[in-house]
């Protein structure tokens, strides 16, 4: 083999390997669970658009990699919040007041997904409320408080450290078209009170 041929061959191998690596790395990155891609924002609430009847290839790939099972559109919607109404990230050292009125669904649940503690494993203390549990005032407003210091009323203790996530599930949504059809006013407010 001539020296020039060898250089051409090495260049070709380099070309193929670079392209393969770029293609695979970008595919891996785009299908990571935490990547904020194809998400709908409404105030602090975000909905990953995975509940479509015929999800796009990226959503399919992300779901398959995550090992999850997305709710069907008619079954329910899943929304998450990692920030409060002012856009500051939710922190376990702070005290929060979450309030809402009628929600666009037959039932809802609000759950604390601590980033350091796995929510489902911690059965010892309460991690959430359902719409059947909370009481509403004369105007139809319910309030749930979150923090380290126990308060009267509907209260969720924050035990972990650092940032946490709130998960809101709406079961049998009364809107067609999924999370995109829900207005900001229909979703709960998250207000920060004090921080330790």
């Amino acid at each position: 083999m001539k020296r020039d041929d060898l250089r051409q061959f090495a260049g070709f191998v380099l070309f193929v390997l670079t392209s393969l690596a770029l293609g695979l790395i970008s595919a891996e990155w785009m299908t990571r669970r935490e990547i904020d891609f194809n998400t709908l924002h409404s105030g602090p609430w975000r909905a990953a658009l995975q509940a479509a009847a015929d999800p796009d290839p990226y959503t399919r790939a992300r779901l398959a990699r995550s090992g999850g099972a997305a709710l069907a559109l008619s079954e329910g919607l899943r929304l998450t919040a990692t920030v409060d109404d002012d856009g500051h990230s939710l922190h376990a050292e702070c005290h929060y007041k979450i309030s809402g009125q009628g929600m666009p669904g037959r039932y809802w649940t609000l759950t604390l997904a601590d980033n350091s503690l796995q929510s489902a494993g911690e059965a010892a203390h309460r991690m959430g409320f359902t719409s059947s549990e909370v009481l509403r005032d004369h105007a139809g407003t319910w309030t749930i408080e979150l923090g380290r210091d126990v308060r009267a009323g509907f209260f969720l203790p924050l035990t972990g450290e650092g940032p946490f996530t709130l998960v809101l599930h709406l079961y049998e949504p009364s809107v067609l078209g999924g999370a995109a059809a829900i207005s900001r006013e229909q979703l709960p407010h998250i207000q920060k009170e004090t921080c330790a």
Binding site: V16, L22, G23, L24, S26, M30, P57, R65
Partner: peptide, 15 residues
């Protein structure tokens, strides 16, 4: 071009 092809094929084949 080749990287884009690899990317698309990977996304479609993951499920």
């Amino acid at each position: 071009v080749l990287a884009a092809g690899v990317h698309i094929a990977t996304i479609l084949l993951i499920p």
